[in-house]
Amino acid sequence: MFAFLIRRIIQAALVMLVVASIAFLMFRFLGDPISNLLPEDATVQDRAEMREKLGLNDPVLVQYGRFIADAAQGDFGQSYRNNRPVSDLLAERFPATAELVLVAAGLALALGVPLGIYTALNPRGWLSQGLQVISLLGISVPTFVTGILLILVFSVTLGLLPSFGRGTVVDLGWWTTGFLTPSGLKALILPAIMLALFQMTLIMRLVRAEMLEVLRADYIKFAKARGIPNRMLHFKYALKNTLIPVMTIFGLQLGGLIAFAIITETVFQWPGMGFLFIQAVNFTDVPVMAAYLVLVSFIFVVINTLVDLLYNVADPRLRAERTPAHGV
């Protein structure tokens, strides 16, 4: 188990190094930041000073080394646009994205898994067939369209829920949360639904397909032949086998949720990291873009490592301390 952990951490570090290199390349290829940083009437002297101050005159390798070393400590330099440390900007925005993604992921799991089980156990029921059709819509309609539709129905027509922002948030010092106020909670509903919809339908279809497969397995037939009651057969014998592969996909999708959050945050003007990133792109604010890229990859890598560990716990066949089969 320990060796496995070390191996995974080394792999994760390598992935992060590659991502950081790509992030660094953005600095080289996305134009000259000086023209964005200084007023238009800046003198040549001003420009040269700024260039020196930012270390842009150093050899590429030195700049690269500095970038990696700083990034490893969480320092991504100053934002070109608002002249504040990028890490501060991200730290401010992180809670908004984290809460949105968390709620969306919870929603997707809490609805997707039971619906998937239901449709697998009643494959011919009219409700299952209906859910299958609706889930096809959920998968194929682009999320920004569903987001805008949600705003149209619940905000514009019915006037029930806010169409933008986080509502009132409570500042806990290190974290701002929308969970503690009614308006914060209300503001969370529509964006969370929009973000969760695609994942939910995906999980539902995945659970359904896996479960149908498992229900055909010999060990389920044998359990049936031993008179194991349906409830135990479905929710104990079949479910665990179903959820193991679903777990991996969900781990990958959790990273996808953070990435998709960019669209949701833009549609709902949600003050999270994705929204910050879109603004940064508009202003070619490379440090912010680079930091966002590295941070999102980091979260991806951490989640996947955790999922792999969980997988080991859930599936006895993968456990590291292997006892070889013996006997006849």
Partner: peptide, 22 residues
Amino acid sequence: RRIRGKEIGAIFQDPLTSLNPV
């Protein structure tokens, strides 16, 4: 279902797939 296992048991062909792996 109550008869299966209690009155009539069954053994299938493939022992490799007859047992629940988890």
